[in-house]
């Protein structure tokens, strides 16, 4: 397995991550190839009939009662945002 430049750009697009002009562009292809070769070792394991394990603990989910526990903290939370107006978070215009 080896990543082409296009494959990396496709992944970077899915992850909305610019990898160009950020100083770490050159080595990324090499690094990813080395990592993927390393993780490829798992394909050799015989896992026939083995259940995938998503979680270390074999327990069940605890639920929450349907109660309102949160108060309006809008001013505190909006203060964390880079750009807001009229109680809204602002992003460059979303085009349909």
């Amino acid at each position: 397995m080896s990543f082409s430049r296009e494959a990396i750009l496709h992944l970077a697009h899915l992850a909305r991550l610019s990898v160009e002009n950020t100083g770490d562009d050159d080595s990324i292809q090499d690094d990813l190839n080395r990592i993927v070769t390393m993780v490829g070792q798992i394909s050799a394991a015989n896992t026939e009939g083995i259940e995938p394990m998503a979680h270390p603990l074999d327990t069940i989910q605890r639920l929450r009662l349907d109660i309102i526990t949160e108060t309006n903290e809008r001013e505190i939370l909006l203060a964390l945002a880079p750009k807001t107006a009229a109680g809204l978070f602002l992003v460059p215009t979303v085009i349909e």
Partner: peptide, 22 residues
């Protein structure tokens, strides 16, 4: 009364972001 994964209120028509918790 509250959201699927948080204790924030779900009433319709509230002030923007007043029912959006951490």
């Amino acid at each position: 009364k509250s959201k699927l994964f948080s204790g924030a209120a779900t009433a319709f028509g509230a002030e923007p972001n007043s029912q959006a918790c951490a």
